[in-house]
């Protein structure tokens, strides 16, 4: 009889790299929470200035603030791991030469910075 080595239910707690993997996967929950929070924001804006201010006050409550800070940490983890993995799926050739993976990752990080700057400029400076 062969012995089948069991996989523990919480196998990913046994290794640091597995823990990081599961945290990366759980970042999707933070992405879903962002959608919920954002749609509540838009709802409040449509209701009028009072509701909008109420929503901002609600978001400043300690519990919601902590949830949003944790969500922020997770979405940053998502972004960083996503851009680092991008060159694995994307192999780009320019004039027969393969673009180095580091260049592709750097391009993604650059795009992240530019997009973030534009969004921040629109929301903070323009409005």
């Amino acid at each position: 009889m062969t012995y089948h080595q069991p996989v523990p239910l919480l196998w990913w707690t046994r290794r640091r790299s597995y823990v990081v993997f599961v945290l990366r996967e759980l970042s999707s929950v933070a992405v879903a929470w962002f959608v919920v929070h954002f749609l509540l924001l838009v709802t409040a804006v449509h209701r009028g200035p009072g509701a909008y201010q109420e929503f901002l006050d609600w978001s400043a409550r300690p519990l919601i603030l902590v949830v949003n800070l944790v969500a922020l940490a997770f979405v940053v983890l998502h972004a960083v791991t996503w851009f680092n993995l991008a060159p694995k799926a994307l192999v780009v050739r320019v004039q027969g030469q393969q673009v180095p993976p580091r260049m592709i990752a750097a391009g993604h990080f650059g795009a992240w910075f530019v997009v973030s700057a534009i969004v921040a400029w629109v929301l903070v400076v323009m409005l």
């Binding site: 962002f34 998502h78 972004a79 992240w112 997009v115 973030s116 969004v119």
Partner: peptide, 9 residues
């Protein structure tokens, strides 16, 4: 989401 969500959050 990687491009937009961190800054919005």
């Amino acid at each position: 989401t990687a491009l937009l969500v961190p800054v919005l959050m």
